[in-house]
């Protein structure tokens, strides 16, 4: 494993609080994430794990606390938000591919519009990425013509096309048939091995055990426990009561 304690953390979350109306969804979330670290966030439904990673690229606003990504503080400054979003790629549970664009256009749109790349450059990169996610032959199809697993791999390629330093995965396999989960996880494993900083919200415990450097366990809006997979999934050592109950359910 490649946990690198010496390095400056690329994401710093310090006392992050967020409310939906009066409902306290994130309570004093404090966590640092190092470069090239793969962090898996697990926890029961409604524990705030998705909200947490959505705060990191400002799809949700946090009301208190600091989030600093790659040295840029996340606040109301639009330029900072734009800068941070360029650094972070995100993959969604529902894929959220653009249905009116082909796979290729899905991947090249942002590089061309945001990064001002030429079409040729963006397309070349897109073909490389499709190769990497193992669906080069689907470039000119529309998302609606692909299977769920293929769509999610396109979504990963689309995020990677912006050459992000960090990738956020928000339950990327939850909407997939069991037969397709594997192909997506394979791609994610490759990505982790290539040294990408990743934060994954997932229910795939096998993936967590195999790939994660660190596991964050969320419950009711706060981090209840964190640790490396070996210790976290070891039922023989001491755990938070909530963790024990959760692990008891899933293992």
């Amino acid at each position: 494993m490649k946990t690198n304690e010496m390095q400056e953390p690329i994401i710093v979350c310090n006392g992050v609080n967020k409310w939906y109306g009066d409902f306290h969804v994130l309570r004093d979330v404090t966590v640092n994430i190092a470069q090239k670290e793969v962090v898996v966030v697990i926890g029961p439904s409604g524990s705030g794990k998705s909200t947490f990673i959505r705060c990191i690229n400002r799809l949700e606003e946090h009301q208190e606390g600091d989030i600093i990504v790659d040295g840029i503080p996340l606040g109301n400054d639009v330029r900072n938000i734009a800068a941070i979003r360029r650094e972070i790629g995100m993959v969604f549970q529902q894929f959220n591919l653009f249905p009116h664009l082909t796979v290729l256009q899905n991947i090249t749109l942002a590089p061309m519009q945001v990064r001002r790349q030429s079409r040729a450059e963006a397309e070349q990169k897109a073909y490389e990425l499709l190769e990497r996610v193992r669906i080069p032959e689907q470039a000119n199809k529309y998302p609606g013509q692909l299977s769920g697993g293929q769509q999610q791999r396109v979504a990963i390629a689309r995020a990677l096309a912006m050459e992000p330093k960090i990738m956020l995965f928000d339950e990327p396999t939850s909407a997939l048939d069991p037969e397709m989960i594997k192909e997506v996880l394979e791609v994610m494993k490759d990505l982790a091995q290539s040294g990408m900083t990743m934060i994954c919200v997932t229910h795939e415990m096998g993936f967590a055990q195999e790939v994660a450097d660190r596991i964050l366990f969320f419950d009711q809006g706060r981090i209840v426990e964190e640790g490396n997979p070996e210790t976290f999934f070891n039922l023989n050592i001491e755990h938070h009561e909530r963790t024990k109950a959760f692990l008891g359910q899933i293992l």
């Binding site: 799809l59 972070i88 790629g89 995100m90 959220n96 653009f98 009116h100």
Partner: peptide, 24 residues
């Protein structure tokens, strides 16, 4: 989700409207 995906890719609001929301 469409707007979110576009925003997450770093597009600004006019780009999101022009390329993602309005065509759909």
């Amino acid at each position: 989700g469409q707007t979110e995906a576009a925003k997450a890719l770093g597009m600004n609001p006019p780009q999101v409207t022009l390329f993602i929301t309005l065509p759909q």
